[in-house]
């Protein structure tokens, strides 16, 4: 089985289209799930997933089979999602009803006023994309910092710093709107 797997990876590296299709079918769900966590829109997540696989297809010669496909795919997908976020206007990212359609409900929902939640979401959408992605993965999705660092191609310390900066900017923005978290 492992031989089959490494054979597919080697063939993909050499530009074999069938190997690419095999890897696409094996990993499209996990890549889509990861992208959806970042872009929070199912339609956009499908487009970004295709874009990410297209980038993988173009970069097949730089792929190192020894390092495995999943981390490489996740890193490319994260950057494709980051590019998508950078192209969006902040107002495009602040439709809470869209988030709620794909997001799992949380226990604290009732405790926080809907208006405060909306304003928090709006303020979050105004943050720089790289801070938003890091905070989304590390704080909202509670992914391990090491995993987030690998996906973004940065160190764990840089993840902590970005999260700290994101929360500080968010608190400042909310304070200016009269909300004291």
């Amino acid at each position: 089985m492992q031989d089959d797997g490494s054979s597919v990876l080697d063939k993909f590296r050499q530009g074999d289209e069938d190997a690419f299709e095999t890897l696409f079918r094996m990993h499209q769900r996990s890549v889509y799930g990861w992208v959806l966590r970042i872009v929070r829109d199912p339609g956009a997540a499908e487009d970004v997933t295709v874009e990410a696989f297209w980038r993988m297809h173009r970069a097949h010669a730089r792929f190192d089979p020894a390092r495995g496909f999943e981390p490489w795919a996740r890193r490319i997908a994260t950057h494709a999602a980051l590019d998508w976020l950078r192209r969006q206007k902040p107002e495009d990212n602040i439709a809470p009803e869209m988030w709620n359609s794909v997001a799992a409900p949380t226990a604290g929902d009732a405790a926080v006023n809907a208006e405060i939640r909306n304003k928090t979401a709006q303020a979050f959408a105004r943050l720089p994309a790289k801070l938003r992605v890091t905070a989304t993965l590390a704080v909202v999705e509670e992914r391990p910092q090491k995993e987030v660092a690998e996906a973004l191609g940065i160190t764990v310390a840089a993840v902590k710093l970005r999260v700290f900066r994101a929360l500080r900017l968010l608190r400042k923005d909310l304070s200016e709107m009269g909300i004291k978290p």
Binding site: E46, T49, V102, V112
Partner: peptide, 22 residues
Amino acid sequence: MAQLLRESLPPIGDSNDPERDL
């Protein structure tokens, strides 16, 4: 602030598949 953020943007979670074959 992190708690407020989580309550404002509920996590997507793991169980999400694309609606169609991509």
